[in-house]
Amino acid sequence: MDIIEINKALSNPVRIDMLKWLKKPEDNFPKQIYVPDFSDGVCVCHIQDKTGLSQSTVSHYLTMLQKANLLIATRHGKWTYYRRNESEILKYIQTLSNEL
Rank of each mutant, 00 (worst) to 15 (best):
residue 20 K to F: 12
residue 86 E to L: 14
residue 46 H to P: 08
residue 77 G to F: 03
residue 36 P to F: 12
residue 62 L to T: 01
residue 23 K to R: 15
residue 40 D to M: 08
residue 95 T to Y: 07
residue 23 K to C: 14
residue 26 E to I: 08
residue 69 N to L: 14
residue 52 G to P: 05
residue 44 V to M: 12
residue 6 I to C: 03
residue 81 Y to F: 15
residue 71 L to D: 05
residue 37 D to V: 12
residue 84 R to G: 04
residue 88 E to L: 09
residue 22 L to Q: 09
residue 66 Q to C: 07
residue 65 L to K: 08
residue 76 H to E: 06
residue 69 N to H: 12
residue 88 E to P: 00
residue 1 M to N: 08
residue 80 T to N: 09
residue 48 Q to W: 00
residue 89 I to M: 13
residue 98 N to F: 01
residue 45 C to Q: 08
residue 61 Y to L: 04
residue 6 I to G: 02
residue 30 P to M: 05
residue 29 F to G: 03
residue 2 D to I: 01
residue 96 L to W: 04
residue 83 R to Y: 10
residue 35 V to N: 15
residue 92 Y to D: 03
residue 61 Y to K: 09
residue 90 L to V: 14
residue 38 F to V: 04
residue 30 P to R: 11
residue 89 I to A: 10
residue 25 P to R: 01
residue 16 I to P: 06
residue 9 A to N: 02
residue 78 K to R: 15
residue 77 G to N: 06
residue 50 K to S: 05
residue 63 T to M: 06
residue 88 E to Q: 11
residue 92 Y to T: 08
residue 32 Q to R: 06
residue 68 A to D: 02
residue 94 Q to K: 10
residue 11 S to E: 12
residue 38 F to M: 03
residue 45 C to T: 06
residue 54 S to M: 11
residue 9 A to Q: 03
residue 79 W to S: 12
residue 31 K to T: 10
residue 17 D to E: 14
residue 50 K to W: 01
residue 93 I to Y: 09
residue 6 I to A: 12
residue 33 I to C: 14
residue 19 L to D: 06
residue 63 T to K: 13
residue 36 P to W: 12
residue 42 V to C: 04
residue 57 T to P: 08
residue 90 L to K: 13
residue 64 M to K: 15
residue 95 T to A: 11
residue 48 Q to E: 13
residue 60 H to I: 02
residue 84 R to K: 11
residue 7 N to H: 07
residue 93 I to W: 09
residue 14 V to F: 04
residue 62 L to K: 00
residue 69 N to W: 07
residue 89 I to L: 14
residue 32 Q to C: 10
residue 95 T to P: 05
residue 80 T to A: 08
residue 85 N to L: 02
residue 12 N to P: 03
residue 41 G to C: 06
residue 3 I to D: 04
residue 52 G to A: 15
residue 48 Q to A: 08
residue 59 S to H: 05
residue 26 E to W: 15
residue 49 D to W: 09
residue 88 E to T: 07
residue 97 S to A: 09
residue 73 A to N: 02
residue 76 H to W: 07
residue 64 M to N: 13
residue 73 A to W: 00
residue 66 Q to G: 05
residue 26 E to Y: 10
residue 50 K to I: 02
residue 100 L to I: 13
residue 43 C to N: 13
residue 81 Y to K: 00
residue 74 T to A: 04
residue 50 K to V: 02
residue 81 Y to I: 00
residue 88 E to K: 09
residue 35 V to A: 12
residue 38 F to N: 02
residue 13 P to R: 08
residue 38 F to P: 04
residue 34 Y to E: 13
residue 34 Y to D: 15
residue 25 P to D: 04
residue 86 E to W: 07
residue 92 Y to K: 03
residue 22 L to A: 06
residue 36 P to L: 14
residue 14 V to L: 11
